[in-house]
Design a protein around this nucleic acid. Structure first.
Length: 689
RNA sequence: GGUGAAGUAGCUCAGUGGUAGAGCAGUGGAAUCAUAAUCCAUUGGUCGGGGGUUCAAAUCCCUCCUUCACUACCA
């Protein structure tokens, strides 16, 4: 029976390019699932677009001194390109700003208005910082001031870069605007609106309870939130880059980016409907109880899709359907074969960019490898060597070789015509049954979002084919017994036929080529073919190798690139020059500081902490106990015996129950502490002036 | 320290109560239809440690250790 499916993947944020982690978690599984649904005769649409509002984009824009539109346009293009190169096919790919979608803002406003009408939105007025020069309210990250805890003058809005204290921006001393650098900030009351999630909790819990078929990790996560109790959540911000809040008293305010982003799924569908020439058609996919809505996301996106987004939909009191399934995936890590601890991290440059990949390899290799290793239940570690091995051994060795040897054999011994089976023996029938069994297993796995199992089973089928072919040795029977030989080729041709069909959602391009080699004129359009045989008597086309071997040289090059990327990032950290302090201090203030050279006598990690070292430092007059946050940068052994400057008259403080009587002074390279050592020998207790 | 996830063969991973698995890598063989692609055989594991429940535990319970992600500790 045919069903309707509305399939989406988390909207990629238009502030950077795609890497293969994105693909493995959210886009490839969705693309494969959509293809499966369509092949099965379901009415499925795959909807996506870039997420184009919010603060990070405005920051990038300001760094480059361009409008946010320029940034959005650039990355929208780049991301779209990446998807196209990897054959990720959307029915519609839009974007949330009016640059790409003229329906989005209106729909987002409607969502807000409706929630407000139904009393799911509250508002309150709080003080926020306002810059007179720029004439605007400032988001936390645009504010700089004095840390309320450590007195650091360059503390960020919500967190101090020196002592890492967290606070609200209101606690910051003498706050300044980072944008115009001399703007004086004043606290001005401003109104914001909140989604009353607490009111919706009971309904959400009831809904989640019906999801016994969801993945455990998703359900557990959501239940954790319920346990703590849902809280109101701000859905507006003082910002210009976003959807304006549709209220009279909301000038200069926009909807928070996470509020409008999921609405992008619907607005993109509206755009699609319009292109179809039936502008109300989107309702069949969002307001129809028979439509199954599936959101593919990475695990970081679980709270938004399984709590906040459904809450927004419930609050509409319209016919919106809640998600049917949210198959959240785990993460992809990047490793280098034979080297340790290389975990994926964009900031370390330890990342494989989609557009880089596509310069060197065909889409199907990555699609195959990521489908086979989809991070469905746990994180997965990608390595280039493994990709090479899998593609060469399985894609080329098992599957490609099977297709090639069978088709070539039919070409040279049966004039390129599929032989007619005659008196099949027990072994032949056994293989034919195995094919049916695998077809059932694979389609079921696809239906259950178990792509890796589906792919593994197809490869298995390929192995069975090679085994059978070797066993039957048709190159011998071709001379001795043509009937048996024909049967063998008939059976293996059926195997190839089914393998090609089953793998087409994963590697569509290659399967399409093979399909045509099997003698079909048109591409694969339906899995009805799975129930049919490759007809005896069909004339095949001349086979050509579809997969080529991935050479060591290219893989070594890719590994080298990866290694270089992570090293340059690690060894040459970009230091953003912190602006000079403008406030002058008196000599008296300076001389109030008692800084001495101290020799580290003992050092050990404070138990059960990551960053803290327990130091005993000889400062001449006495030995001080100092607790320093250096454990991530230095081992105790590296510090023992070193002479370093110490601020000794800082008032003692208790850290994790231990009294710290001073502070080791270090250079700060983007949070990395670097110890300072005197150029000549200095005895402990020497003053520093 | 809190929360969550994980620890199974050299590597990447399956396996949720019933004789420890796959692929790759390693070793030994066979075959020559096929892009040297295949096939057969084989080496390799006190399933992180310890305790418990059970006739039976990789699997359930307790505890400890380690790793990862968020988070806390940075005077």
């Amino acid at each position: 029976m045919s069903c309707k499916y509305t399939i989406t993947s988390g909207l990629p944020y238009a502030n950077g390019p795609l890497h293969i982690g994105h693909i493995a978690g959210a886009y490839l599984p969705a693309d494969i699932y959509t293809r499966v649904r369509k092949l099965s005769g379901d009415d499925a649409i795959y909807i996506c677009g870039t997420d184009e509002y919010g603060v990070p984009i405005t920051i990038t824009a300001e760094k480059e001194d361009v409008s946010p539109r320029v940034i959005v346009k650039r990355y929208h293009q780049e991301i779209k390109e990446g998807f196209k190169n990897l054959n990720i096919q959307f029915d519609n790919f839009s974007g949330t700003s009016n640059l790409h979608n003229k329906h989005h803002a209106a729909l987002a406003r409607e969502f807000f208005t409706e929630l407000k009408k139904n009393d799911y939105i509250s508002s309150k007025i709080d003080d926020q910082l306002h810059c007179k020069e720029c004439d605007r309210f400032l988001a936390d990250r645009y504010v700089e001031g004095t840390c309320p805890k450590c007195g650091n003058d360059e503390a960020r809005g919500d967190e101090c870069s020196v002592c890492n204290a967290q606070y609200t921006v209101m606690e910051l001393g003498s706050p300044k605007c980072k944008l115009c650098s001399n703007g004086t900030l004043s606290k001005v009351p401003t109104k914001h609106w909140y989604l009353k999630l607490d009111v919706l909790q009971a309904k959400l819990e009831e809904w989640i309870d019906s999801k016994d078929y969801w993945k455990e990790n998703v359900v557990n996560f959501v239940k954790g939130w319920f346990k703590d109790g849902l809280r109101e959540r701000a859905i507006t911000r003082d910002l210009h880059w976003g959807v304006p809040v549709p209220l009279n008293d909301a000038a200069g305010k926009v909807l928070y980016v996470w509020f409008d982003a999921p609405i992008g799924y619907i607005s993109s569908t509206i755009e699609w409907a319009e292109k179809q020439g039936d502008k109300d058609k989107w309702k069949e996919y969002w307001q129809n109880p028979d439509a199954k809505i599936v959101h593919f996301i990475g695990k970081d996106n679980i709270p938004f899709h399984s709590i906040i987004w459904p809450a927004m939909l419930i609050g509409q009191k319209k016919d919106y359907q809640l998600p049917w399934h949210i198959p959240a995936n785990e993460y992809l890590n990047i490793g280098i074969d034979g080297e340790e601890g290389a975990k994926a991290s964009t900031s370390k440059g330890n990342v494989v960019w989609v557009n880089d990949y596509c310069k060197h390899f065909a889409a199907d290799y990555l699609r195959y490898y990521l489908a086979l290793n989809a991070p469905e239940k746990s994180d997965f570690t990608f390595t280039w060597k493994d990709l090479q091995a899998r593609c060469n051994n399985e894609l080329l060795g098992v599957l490609g070789n099977l297709a090639n040897r069978v088709l070539k054999f039919i070409g040279s011994n049966f004039e390129g015509v599929i032989p007619t089976p005659e008196d099949l023996d027990a072994r032949d029938n056994e293989v034919l049954e195995k094919i049916q069994h695998s077809v059932a297993k694979v389609t079921k796995s696809y239906d259950n979002f178990e792509v890796r199992q589906a792919v593994a089973e197809v490869v298995n089928l390929g192995r069975v084919g090679n085994q059978y072919f070797d066993e039957k040795a048709p190159w011998k029977t071709a001379k001795s017994d043509r009937k048996v030989c024909g049967n063998t080729l008939y059976v293996t041709a059926q195997l190839v036929h089914k393998i090609v069909l089953l793998l087409t959602p994963v590697i569509p391009e290659s399967c399409d080529k093979l399909w045509k080699q099997l003698g079909y004129e048109n591409g694969i359009s339906s899995w009805d073919e799975l129930q049919k045989d490759l007809p005896a008597g069909q004339k095949i086309h001349k086979p050509q190798g579809v997969f080529s071997k991935i050479e060591d040289k290219v893989i070594q090059q890719m590994e080298e690139n990866l290694r270089n990327a992570s090293q340059t990032e690690q060894e040459q950290p970009k230091v953003e020059l912190v602006p000079l302090k403008e406030d002058k201090i008196s000599y008296d203030q300076f001389s109030a500081l008692d800084i001495r050279m101290g020799k580290v006598l003992e050092a050990e990690k404070v138990a059960k902490t990551k960053k803290l070292l327990h130091l005993k430092v000889d400062i001449g007059h006495e030995v001080r106990q100092i607790i320093a946050g250096l454990a991530e940068h230095y081992t105790p052994e590296e510090l023992i015996g070193k002479t370093v400057p110490v601020l000794v008259n800082l008032e003692p403080a208790k850290i994790r129950g231990l009294v710290s009587e001073g502070m080791v002074l270090c250079a700060d390279i983007d949070g990395q502490a670097i110890t300072l050592h005197p150029g000549k020998k200095v005895c402990p207790g020497a003053t520093v002036r």
